[in-house]
C-alpha cells in the first residue's frame, strides 16, 4: 500500500475524483466520471510524478444497475496497481470515451468490452464484435443474459438476485427459438 501515491493522486486529480481514494493491499482505486476518462488517463500517463505508462487491463463491468469501465495501470514510480473505475454509465445506452488515443492497444480490449457488454467507445475507429459472430445481437456478459442451462450453476445458493429477472426479448432464448423453428435447408 503506497500512501504517498494517494496524496499525489489527490493533488493531480482533485477535481476529477468521485469519492475518496481507496487503498487495500497492493491496489489503489479511484472512481471518476466516464466523461473525464481522457483527461484523467492523460494526466496519469504524462505527469512526471505518476508515469502510469502500461495499460495492464481494460474491462467492462455490469453491476446490474449501471455499467462501469475499469482500467488497471502500472507505473515504475509506485508499488501499487492503480485501478480506475469509470462509474455510472447508464445500462440502456452505455457510452464511454475511447482510450485508443493514448494506448493503441486499447482498441481490441474495447472491442471485447463492446462485444460482451455493448458499451460503445466513442473514438474507437474499429468498434465491431471480436469474439461473437457478426450476426449476433445480444451481449453475453450482461447480468440479464441468462445461461440456458443450469448445469454451470453451482450446487450452492448461487443464483444471484439480479439473474432472477425476466428473460429480455431479443436475448439468447429468442435466437435459440428461431433456430429451432427454421426449416432444415
Amino acid at each position: 500500500m503506497d500512501l504517498t501515491l494517494k496524496t499525489r493522486l489527490e493533488a493531480r486529480l482533485g477535481d476529477y475524483l468521485r469519492g475518496p481514494v481507496y487503498q487495500r493491499r497492493d491496489e489503489t482505486e479511484i472512481r471518476i466520471e466516464p466523461d473525464s476518462v481522457p483527461d484523467v488517463l492523460r494526466i496519469l500517463r504524462d505527469a512526471r510524478d505518476l508515469r502510469f505508462e502500461i495499460l495492464a487491463d481494460l474491462a467492462g463491468v455490469d453491476t446490474g444497475d449501471v455499467m462501469q469501465v475499469v482500467y488497471h495501470l502500472w507505473s515504475p514510480m509506485t508499488t501499487d496497481w492503480l485501478r480506475i473505475i469509470a462509474d455510472g454509465i447508464p445500462r440502456d445506452d452505455p457510452r464511454a470515451p475511447s482510450a485508443t488515443f493514448l494506448w493503441t492497444g486499447a482498441e481490441w480490449l474495447e472491442r471485447e468490452a463492446y462485444d460482451m457488454f455493448g458499451i460503445v467507445f466513442e473514438g474507437n475507429r474499429d468498434l465491431r464484435r471480436i469474439f461473437m459472430p457478426p450476426d449476433y445481437t445480444s451481449f453475453p456478459l450482461r447480468k440479464d443474459f441468462l445461461l440456458p442451462d443450469d448445469a454451470a450453476r453451482s450446487t450452492g445458493a448461487g443464483v444471484r438476485q439480479v439473474e432472477l429477472g425476466v428473460r429480455p426479448t431479443g436475448a439468447n432464448g429468442d435466437a435459440a427459438d428461431d433456430i429451432r423453428r427454421a426449416p432444415a435447408s
Partner: peptide, 25 residues
C-alpha cells in the same frame, strides 16, 4: 502478464471474473 480482475458480491460465485490474456494484446 496474466491478470485476473474479480469482484465479489458476498456470494459463493464471483460477481465478475475478468481474464486478461497476454497473447490477446
Amino acid at each position: 502478464m496474466m491478470g485476473v480482475y474479480s469482484i465479489s458480491d458476498g456470494s459463493d460465485q464471483p460477481f465478475r471474473f475478468r481474464i486478461h490474456d497476454p497473447s490477446f494484446v
